[in-house]
Design a protein around this nucleic acid. Structure first.
Length: 569
RNA sequence: CGGGGCAUGGCGCAGUCUGGUAGCGCAUCUGCUUUGGGAGCAGAGGGUCGGCGGUUCGAAUCCGUCUGCCCCGACCA
């Protein structure tokens, strides 16, 4: 592509609407433009990236034996009524009527449609297993679209659905998709982790998420390098801490802590670690009006785990200050378990603290040097918190580390949730109708583009992984309009590289070098070749990788070979 | 949906408090100069100041109302 034929419009300044780096860079580099909240146009440059991502996904899905089809985005309400989701799905499902007042929705996902296809196309166990997939636009009327295409309302998704006679076959299909997903994200050159997911929501058995690691990720991922375990921090079952609690070394002491109501303030005021403070949270109970949950100061309450307690009301609700006062007689901020007259459950870690600090149930006072057993009864314990870095891995191989991740893929075993509801059956060997076992496998295609940028950028702009860069190489002729030789060199090299199979961008604009370099960096082309008259006359050309800090001179006649060898995909 | 903020040329902003007929930087166009990291000079085009209503001799500015967008919380690829 010659840049003179390509209306590339880049911005130096950061658009005010963009919060995260990928969104800023996609706007600045001219990849996307916003049409309305959560709706984006993919400009030619961005679309090239999107297509590269799609191509890799297609190749790997095909390799895994999946069959591509394409389902409508507009779907009739009847199907959704059959599955029960017309009611279950909230306002995120955009519903609309046609001219005859028939009800439809914009597909946020395609389980209903694919199940409908499967029940009419698949009648015999001999046809199974089958994996269908599509790359389609989805629409979810998100409450709060944000971060550009990272969480848009309209987005591209690759969704696949597998159909099986029995669970054993489902497991095989699931495993096959899992392998395909690993290949896909590896080929996309992204750093990712496979994470145990909470299977609760959709039901079914096993479910795993694929996360691209990035600072701005919305999920916190706990993982263990040693044993390969990885899970969302809020789904980690934290192993019980071994060993007895520490011995008491200090005496119980009442200290005045005026207006110190938070763990941060307390730890600063008394100069102790948050980990040595005890946090007392009061939530609504099932029988009692209030239940106290105790955590170490640096830990976070896990909603799901707390709700699992019989004594805690679902959904979990923290009591307001006035309610706490009414239930306990004390002021929040100075609560502690000693002589607290409501049911108490302590997180396991909190129950093995020694010489800790906690509220004294007296305004402006805390205790220090508190010890279970000696100063107050040992509480009931449970696993109540989110995992943090340094916790032991549930798989037993070592300690957990925590990083943030962007969910780009999700695979799960649906079982017969949809096939039962929609009567998608096949005849088995005995001529008996059986509901098909289903699996479902999604990849957020447009989100991958944003995630790739989150993971690969620097002060100058995007640094594309080679596998998905819009162009492989950018040619930057200097003073092309002045020097006929430079122009000739650029044209011939442009042709040569294209013939060799590279996607080449020729910056033949009559701009100053600085402008060209800045744009080349911003749009993140992995390889840059600079043509200057003097060096060219000596048979040399300048090469610089986008990731490299320095350029190098290479002989002109070896350029194609050099690039072919340097290329990483 | 609850809480906070913003809306002025394609982009980033000032002007609003204290009403007087709109300005700066970037981008765009023309010309000359310049040519290895977002050039300089000279000139030009482009804005019903988000919409509607009100107050006023006069409204970007004050009042009311509606809309759109962004940020923080519960969902998800």
């Amino acid at each position: 592509m010659r840049l003179t034929d390509f209306p590339l419009k880049t911005f130096k300044e950061v658009p005010a609407e963009a919060e995260v780096i990928s969104h800023q860079l996609m706007l600045r580099a001219g990849l996307i433009r916003r049409l309305a909240s959560g709706l984006y146009t993919w400009l030619p440059l961005g679309l090239r990236v999107l297509h590269k991502v799609e191509a890799i996904i297609r190749e790997e899905m095909d390799r895994a034996g999946a069959l591509e089809l394409l389902m409508p985005m507009v779907q009739p309400a009847e199907l959704w009524r059959e599955s029960g989701r017309w009611k279950e799905y909230g306002p995120e499902l955009l519903r609309l009527n046609d001219r005859h007042q028939r009800e439809f929705c914009l597909g946020p996902t395609h389980e209903e449609v694919i199940t409908d296809i499967a029940r009419s196309e698949l009648r015999s166990y001999r046809q199974l297993p089958v994996i269908y997939y599509q790359i389609q636009t989805k629409f979810r009327d998100e409450i709060r679209p944000r971060f550009g295409v990272m969480r848009a309302r309209e987005f591209t998704m690759k969704d696949a659905y597998s159909f099986h006679l029995d669970e054993a076959s489902l497991l095989e299909g699931y495993e096959k998709m899992r392998v395909a997903y690993e290949r896909i994200f590896t080929r996309l050159q992204l750093e990712f982790r496979i994470v145990q997911a909470d299977p609760g929501a959709i039901g079914g058995n096993r479910s795993e998420e694929f996360h691209v690691l990035a600072e701005s990720g919305e999920d916190a991922i706990a993982y263990c390098e040693a044993d390969g375990y990885a899970a969302n921090v809020d789904t980690v079952a934290i192993p019980a801490v071994g060993g007895p609690r520490g011995e008491a070394k200090t005496d119980l002491e009442l200290v005045q802590t005026p207006a110190v109501r938070t763990i941060d303030a307390l730890s600063a005021f008394l100069n102790v670690e948050p980990a040595d403070c005890l946090k007392t949270l009061v939530v609504q109970g099932t029988d009692a009006p209030a239940v106290a949950l105790l955590l170490c100061g640096h830990h976070e309450l896990n909603r799901i785990k707390a709700e699992a307690l019989e004594s805690v009301a679902r959904p979990l609700r923290m009591l307001r200050a006035t309610e706490v006062q009414a239930a306990t007689g004390y002021e929040p901020g100075f609560l502690g378990p000693k002589e607290l007259e409501i049911p108490i459950v302590a997180d396991r870690a909190a129950a093995v603290l020694s010489d800790f600090v906690c509220g004294a149930n007296q305004t402006d006072y805390h205790f220090r040097g508190v010890n279970w057993g000696r100063d107050l009864p040992v509480p009931a314990t449970a696993d109540l918190r989110n995992a943090v870095a340094g916790d032991p891995s549930p798989a037993g191989g070592g300690l957990l580390a925590v990083k943030r991740g962007i969910e780009v893929g999700h695979i799960f075993q649906l079982g017969t949730r949809y096939s039962d509801a929609m009567e998608a059956t096949v005849l088995n060997k005995d001529g008996k109708a059986c509901a098909m076992q289903m699996g479902c496998y999604g990849i957020g295609v447009t989100r991958i583009v944003a995630a790739a940028i989150e993971q690969n950028n620097d002060d100058h702009g995007i640094v594309w992984p080679e596998a998905i860069a819009p162009f492989d190489v950018v040619l930057v002729p200097i003073n092309m309009d002045k020097s006929y030789r430079v122009k000739e060199a650029a044209d011939s090299l442009y042709q040569e590289l294209q013939d060799a199979g590279f996607d080449v961008l020729l910056d033949d604009r009559p701009h100053r070098p600085g402008v060209k370099f800045a744009d080349a960096d911003l749009i993140g082309i992995p390889h840059r070749l600079v043509i200057v008259e003097k060096a060219w006359d000596e048979g040399k050309i300048e090469y610089k990788a986008r990731r490299a800090t320095d350029a190098e001179m290479i002989p002109v006649e070896t350029v194609t070979k050099f690039l072919a060898e340097t290329r990483q995909c």
